[in-house]
Design a protein around this nucleic acid. Structure first.
Lengths: 229, 229
DNA sequence: CCGCAGAGTAAAAATCGTGTAAAGGCCACT
DNA sequence: AGTGGCCTTTACACGATTTTTACTCTGCGG
């Protein structure tokens, strides 16, 4: 369990006084801090700085916080603690199920928030996750939803991209049919393996040098698919 | 990534109406539940049942909840969600730093508690130990369903892998014909010993240095097979 | 020496999984 | 209303896998 001495916190909140208060509290407790005042800025800083943890306010002026979380989770498993004025219960459940690691309601007690950040950090399995994946001539920029092949941008439809993203995030490992179907088409579609046949076909058409002899998206008969790592 | 279908929740709370309410809610959401009314009972049930998650009330009649948590953490990393009437902030911080994974204040919203339990379970799955078995030049990575021989990946069909995994799990011990057949082909096939002869043959072809003189998958005449450990 | 039982081998037959193409439906845009 | 893009659904052919069958080998006891 090796830690860089001072973990970096990304603080996304549009209220300047909250940013100031928390920056001081966090820095006094051995963190480094970068702040963002909007969702867009938060996402771009997250991709750029690779924080050890994110504190995210839900009430942002531009992108809804829920959406920021969703976008972030497309490529990162960084712990996210939600901060919100809304004590709205369905929002809490949605955020927690959407991949948030904790949810703290404003006004909050600073000592408690810090303790909850320590819990979230404890849970994190420090996995070096790259937001850019590369193999051969293929480059996938997960933070920006861009796929390029030999420098040429490849345009993927929403479903194609969602499926491909899942394979990329588990590059080298077998991803089972059920897992792919559950995450791309939802739990109700777990049995619809024909979706996979069709869409894996599309991806191979767009990405493989020779689609009829796949070297990138490999079939694991009876189990699932695996992306060459 | 092995999943048991219904995770077991240990619910430690001295108030019967809370136990009833939560038992109903949890069972309706696909959990199995065991309940304890005291700290002592909770600790003993935790040791005995190995729950997938613990919901622990802090205000117990015998042992202080904080102490229950400490004793539990001496031997277990099971996720613990604290439930408490005290909105006392220093108590929260102490519990979270004492190894609790979340802290919910009574009265609580059931949907939120359930969402927080899902978060805690999500965290626990990540740190599942990677079970890699190795003997000689053969490496079996059960978590990733990969078998390599002298660094070369060996591809096994679904049935071959299921059979081999069973032998690997009991490496060094004899696994009987009936047991192998029951677990791989189902209880109805317990008598079909010819399946084993065929598939053990396949595995030896793929994995043994000299398939006609097995040194890896050994025959125990009239009983079963054994994997060299 | 023969016959038998348990085990291994080989290959045919049956079944299942996969890739592919194409048709129909839905939606957004014009 | 028409068009284009995408998602869903269906049908079929092919290859891989599983199941079934038949045969061989070996060791043991009559």
């Amino acid at each position: 369990m090796s830690e860089s001495p001072k973990p970096l916190v990304l603080l996304v909140d549009d209220e300047p006084q909250i940013r100031r208060l928390l920056t001081v509290a966090l820095e006094a407790n051995g963190y480094r801090v970068v702040t963002a005042a909007s969702g867009q800025e938060g996402l771009s800083l997250a991709a750029h700085h690779r924080p050890a943890i994110v504190v995210l306010d839900l009430g942002l002026p531009d992108v809804p916080g829920q959406e920021v979380l969703r976008r972030l989770r497309e490529w990162s498993n960084v712990p996210v603690v939600i901060l919100s004025v809304q004590d709205d219960e369905t929002g809490k459940v949605a955020a927690l199920d959407g991949g948030a690691d904790d949810y703290v309601t404003k006004p909050f007690n600073t000592a408690e928030l810090l303790a909850r950040l320590r819990v979230a950090m404890r849970h994190a399995v420090r996995q070096d996750e790259e937001s850019v994946f590369q193999t051969g001539a293929l480059v996938v920029d997960l933070a920006n939803r861009r796929v390029t092949l030999k420098g040429q941008e490849v345009s993927l439809t929403v479903t194609e991209y969602n499926l491909f993203r899942l394979l990329v995030r588990h590059a080298g490992k077998v991803v089972t049919h059920r897992q792919l179907l559950r995450e791309v088409w939802g739990p109700a579609a777990e049995e619809q393996t024909h979706y996979l046949r069709v869409y894996v076909g599309h991806l191979r058409d767009k990405l493989e040098a020779n689609p009829s002899e796949p070297s990138l998206i490999l079939t694991e008969q009876g189990v699932g698919y695996r992306l060459k790592s």
